[in-house]
Nucleic acid binder design. Structure first.
Lengths: 190, 190, 190, 190
DNA sequence: CATGAATGAGTTTTCATTCAT
DNA sequence: TATGAATGAAAACTCATTCAT
């Protein structure tokens, strides 16, 4: 696997994501990926040792990307609510503009491809966010309850919002986003 | 002759669910299902025309079951909050006691097996719940906003709670459940 | 395999013949035979050790039957042409009234079921007919040529006539049969 | 890359024909075909969508071939008997040199693979021959009887001759062929 | 005997992976 | 590198045969 044409990797990734959204991880085959990527099957194997590696590589790539998206423009020195809102909006934004990617990551999470390492890695990326929540509790702006609960309502809401938006059951205008955030905040605030 | 044992269908369903939780819909094979169900592969084909039908039947079965669970013991003549809380608890309870089932239903939703009909059927089952939300708005107890938002935070939270509980990141004691419901209510209340 | 109900054997035979005509020997399965015979699959195995034996048994049965049909009412002391014509008509009659049977026997002949013994047995049943031809040659009524040729035109014609009749491309009225026989006779006569 | 070798189709066809002669259409499996063709099973599926299609394609291919053989070197402006004899000899020749093919076509005709379309196609290919017979009747050289009868004795004889020859019950020398044709002619001539 | 559910070997078909070009 | 034909192991599915009732 020599990396000559970086763009081909991207093309393969995109094809895999697209396909996953269409037929689920259960439905993807290397042949289909290659076809959608306008490549020969063999070419995929120049860039990835095998299907498993392609899937794992893609997951890692996406996870990094999404974590980066999440903390984009966030200054942890800002007041808690400012930080939190920024993260909240980033997360929603990211989940929507990279919906295919989100779907893939979720499916990966319940597929035969996931390994113990990936699972741990994934949860470790939430650490900065958890620390922020601790600070919020210390500053008495949010309810003094288990992070797991705070995370659950927040992440669960954002995730669901992105699906609702994609399935066109709701258009996420600036107003609606504000309202949504307010709901989330009402749930958390002390 | 051996009488056709309808319990076998249940055994096959359970094996499929178990397997889906372990390796995802992507990882299940008829051979594995049969093995886990302590049956010969051929036997599966006595009860289901093919793998696709097995998966679809199972989804339909689970969806019905879960809708039934949801409205169990709910009296729509009760005050709004009583109804809502009952539904909320039922939903969480059901998602946890039937976690395998929930995972399967989600995976099915993004698999090559889903059809347009199933998709429609699934969303139609939410209707009574949507009507309840309308009533809540009319009675001025919840925020006068789009049902999609109200649903998103509620369903998203419950879903996430069940995962958090299953992954043992949180034990859902009676107290915690009360706290969680309060959070959800804070998000919705007028 | 105890033979209790002789009629069941006949029912199984008929089902097999019918099925062979419909889908060919390649298409028959024990389940299909049983279904057409209005029996359970297992019942077939009470009367026949296995599928192979059923097929072979049936062939033997039919071959005997058809040989009997062929020589029905033939008196070898009659003049050659009388004998020959009687045999000719018998053969055609038999092939038509037992068309399913004929199809089966032909298919059997080119199937994985046939054995060396059956093959020999089949050709040995033609002996009396061959002897008659020899007599015809001795009496100078037919051409003094190889029996194989005489048989080929005669059997080939009769076989083809039966197909033509069954496929409704020709109605074998008494007149037509006379004409046909005359053609055959013209081919053979000295 | 390896270039798609259209000769492989021919190899697969030959293997299928050989196999059909050995065990009948009922006995062929894709694995056996592949083995005889010195290919992996999967390779067969590169050239044919499935077993059924392979069988049907082969039939179509053979039917075309045999029709071509039949009319090879025939000039319909020649006198009737010249034309007819040429066709007769072509047909016999073709049936013998392509005996495997003939056996396959017959078996196909009584197999689960045949479709209404193929059946119609097959009978339509006989049209030119039927027209010739009409001409023969108009020219008063053959008996003024139903084409079906004329066809039956002719085709039936040729078919049977080929079997007799293949089963080594008769060597078709030039002399014998002449004699045989004469028999056929005696049957038809006015 | 009769039944048809159950079995598992065998068949068809798919698909990850290799390899000749 | 890039290709896609070729491979064969594994998956889906069928069916002859057995067996509990």
């Amino acid at each position: 696997m020599r990396v000559k044409d970086e763009r081909k990797i991207e093309v393969i990734y995109q094809a895999t994501l697209q396909l996953t959204q269409e037929v689920g991880i259960a439905g993807i085959t290397v042949a289909k990926i290659a076809k959608k990527a306008n490549l020969a099957t063999g070419t995929v194997y120049i860039y990835f040792k095998n299907k498993e590696e392609l899937i794992n590589q893609l997951y890692l790539h996406l996870k990094q990307q999404s974590t980066q998206d999440l903390f984009q423009g966030v200054d942890l020195k800002d007041p808690f609510k400012v930080c939190f809102k920024k993260l909240w909006i980033n997360s929603l934004q990211s989940k929507i503009t990279h919906f295919k990617e989100s779907v893939f990551m979720e499916q990966y999470y319940h597929s035969p491809y996931i390994t113990v390492e990936t699972r741990q890695m994934a949860s470790s990326q939430m650490l900065p966010f958890l620390e922020l929540l601790e600070r919020g509790k210390k500053e008495l702006v949010i309810k003094p309850i288990d992070n797991a609960l705070l995370m659950a309502i927040t992440y669960g809401f954002i995730r669901q919002l992105s699906y609702t938006h994609i399935e066109q059951k709701l258009v996420l205008s600036q107003d609606i986003i504000e309202t949504a955030f307010q709901m989330n905040w009402d749930a958390l605030k002390a």
